[in-house]
């Protein structure tokens, strides 16, 4: 009887991979039901409200280009209460220049990083810890090494809201909180890449998804049989 064979195959396949279906369901449910903008910490970040006061930009772009002819990626913006240029310079690397004097402001120190963090944080919690990450081996898995060097500022709320502030530019490069960290774990389990979650094209996922497709097809055939082919007159 074909139904019996289907049922046995479905049962045995699911005995081996049914747990992964549970994992896919739970992780998928978490990822679709949590608002992605919330996950990405957007509500934690105060958008800069202050507009530029252009009449106070007394060090002009002409001055800047005369002094730094190699400057690229020139941006005029704010650093707390100051108006500053951020530039990429072939010799000195990334620089912050005071937009009224042209004076280089140097790297962001711990005190400054704390002030920036508090300024941009929409929450009311205090800073619990702060540390400078500058070497690739210090980088936690939640941060991409391209953001180095950064100040890692962790707030004292239950979800360990964390701001990463670039040491050269003073810019808030990314944030993290426990819901995002959990989301990353959900993702790893969803794609069955348990170390860094960067490789969707892994063999384990391929094998389980192939077997899973087979098991689900058999299940669908069983359902079809039970729901639409009950012509033999069930009691």
């Amino acid at each position: 009887m074909i139904t019996t064979k289907l049922r046995k195959a479905h049962k045995w396949l699911m005995t081996f991979i049914g747990i992964q279906f549970l994992v896919w369901s739970i992780t998928g449910l978490y990822m679709v039901s949590m608002d992605i903008h919330f996950i990405h910490g957007e509500p934690l970040k105060q958008q800069p409200l202050n507009t530029l006061e252009l009449d106070k930009v007394t060090y002009s772009l002409s001055d800047l280009l005369s002094e730094y002819p190699q400057a690229q990626n020139i941006q005029l913006g704010r650093l707390l209460d100051k108006q500053v240029y951020r530039i990429d310079e072939s010799q000195s690397g990334k620089l912050i220049l005071d937009a009224s004097t042209g004076e280089p402001l140097g790297n962001i120190d711990e005190n400054m990083a704390k002030r920036i963090a508090k300024h941009r944080y929409t929450g009311t919690h205090d800073i619990q810890s702060i540390q400078l990450l500058s070497k690739p081996e210090q980088v936690p898995s939640e941060l991409s090494a391209r953001h180095l060097p950064v100040w890692q500022v962790t707030f004292s709320n239950p979800f360990a809201d964390t701001f990463y502030i670039n040491q050269y530019s003073g810019e808030l490069v990314t944030t993290r909180h426990h819901f995002w960290r959990l989301f990353d774990w959900m993702w790893r389990f969803h794609i069955m890449d348990y170390d860094d979650g960067e490789n969707v094209a892994n063999w384990l996922l391929l094998m389980i998804a192939l077997l899973g497709s087979l098991a689900a097809t058999l299940g669908l055939l069983l359902t079809y049989q039970r729901v639409f082919k009950t012509s033999q007159g069930a009691s």
């Binding site: 800069p48 530029l52 002009s60 002409s62 913006g77």
Partner: peptide, 19 residues
């Protein structure tokens, strides 16, 4: 460099950022 006009001369209000 001297051919760049100063940002103060731009006809714009409420700029938050200029690149």
């Amino acid at each position: 460099p001297e051919r760049l006009i100063p940002v103060t001369q731009l006809a714009v209000q409420n700029a938050k950022h200029i690149g």
